[in-house]
Amino acid sequence: MENRSYFRNEILRIEGLRITQYSAYPVFILLFLTYLFIMVSNLGIVMMIVVEKALHKPMYLLFCNLPVNDALNATVVLPGLLKDILAESDRYISYAACVIQAFGVHTFNTCTHSILIIMAFDRYVAICNPLRYNTIMTNKMVVRLSVIAWVAAAVPVIILLALTLRLSHCTSTILNPYCDNPSLFKLSCDNLSVNQIFGVFITVVVLIISISCISLTYLKIAHVCLKNQNSTLKSKAIKTCSTHLILYLIHFGCSCTVIILHRFSAYEELRNLASILIYVIPTSLNPVIYGLQTKEIRHWIEQIFLRRKVIPG
């Protein structure tokens, strides 16, 4: 018990982020501006949907989950990295804080998959069952789907971290730029087979479920569009589904890159870079792609700039 309590109060050293003295400030400025853009763009879209009554539709209310998740996802990692870049000494973090960060890292990344699945379901109902859309996609259904998306992401992460917490430690150095589950269980010299197998199992299950659900949804949508000769329906399907598919492919590609590189210790520097970019690329591109491709959001943004342009005159 005393030994276990010691581990819980242990201070860990994170050495995954290696930046030279000359590149520290340019990297800091670039990362800071990116983080600022991520927060302003994502939270701006959320506020836009909350304020504008015309956007109080299931499609946009479900989408609200994504920018909120992106803002939280970036906040879990990027502020700590910004602090580390300016610090001249190594970064130290308590074991408890490291576990909390790992929980956020995995939950928010997994939640992106579940959010995109419920968004795909909304598009399926809108295109394949338009007459029943308002009956199916009620406010109660929107809340239910949103809760399912977040809970489904958190539960497997809790199990993963519970398996890691049972391990003893033989080192106190995190080789990643931030805390995640693989970095935590690699602190132990115990048999890690259960952690590795279950970690791979959860990853594969999440990817298979997301790929299967979204593929099935798009196949059904494509079938309806090919069967129906309505050009308006086809145009609507292409616009809404292409945006959703681009968001999914960006996140899927970034996630797979990090997962694959985690299995090869020889590419540690590349893995560290990819581990950071996964919190930069999807979180900054999602609001831009969705905002530019969605007619109502684009129109609302244009109205804001037009009002500001007219008022001074």
Rank of each mutant, 00 (worst) to 15 (best):
94 S>V: 04
93 I>H: 01
37 F>D: 02
16 G>A: 01
115 I>M: 04
124 Y>P: 00
308 R>A: 08
138 T>W: 08
172 S>R: 09
203 T>E: 13
248 Y>L: 01
26 P>L: 00
11 I>Q: 13
210 S>W: 03
85 I>E: 07
277 L>I: 03
264 F>S: 11
21 Q>T: 09
203 T>R: 10
146 S>A: 08
5 S>L: 13
135 T>G: 15
262 H>R: 13
294 T>F: 00
251 H>W: 07
234 K>T: 05
105 V>I: 05
192 L>V: 00
218 Y>Q: 08
269 E>A: 12
186 K>N: 14
78 L>D: 03
112 T>F: 04
106 H>L: 03
180 D>G: 05
7 F>V: 04
313 G>R: 13
137 M>H: 05
30 L>E: 11
152 A>F: 08
164 T>A: 08
2 E>G: 09
245 L>E: 08
79 P>H: 06
52 E>Y: 12
33 L>R: 15
217 T>S: 12
49 I>T: 05
297 I>A: 03
31 L>I: 05
228 N>R: 14
98 C>D: 03
142 V>Q: 02
158 I>A: 15
229 Q>K: 15
269 E>N: 14
176 N>C: 00
301 I>E: 10
95 Y>F: 11
278 I>A: 05
253 G>E: 06
121 F>N: 11
307 R>F: 10
26 P>G: 05
69 N>E: 05
8 R>T: 04
74 A>G: 03
32 F>V: 03
35 Y>F: 08
24 A>S: 12
87 A>L: 08
26 P>I: 04
201 F>A: 12
218 Y>N: 08
272 N>M: 03
255 S>M: 07
74 A>C: 06
208 I>L: 09
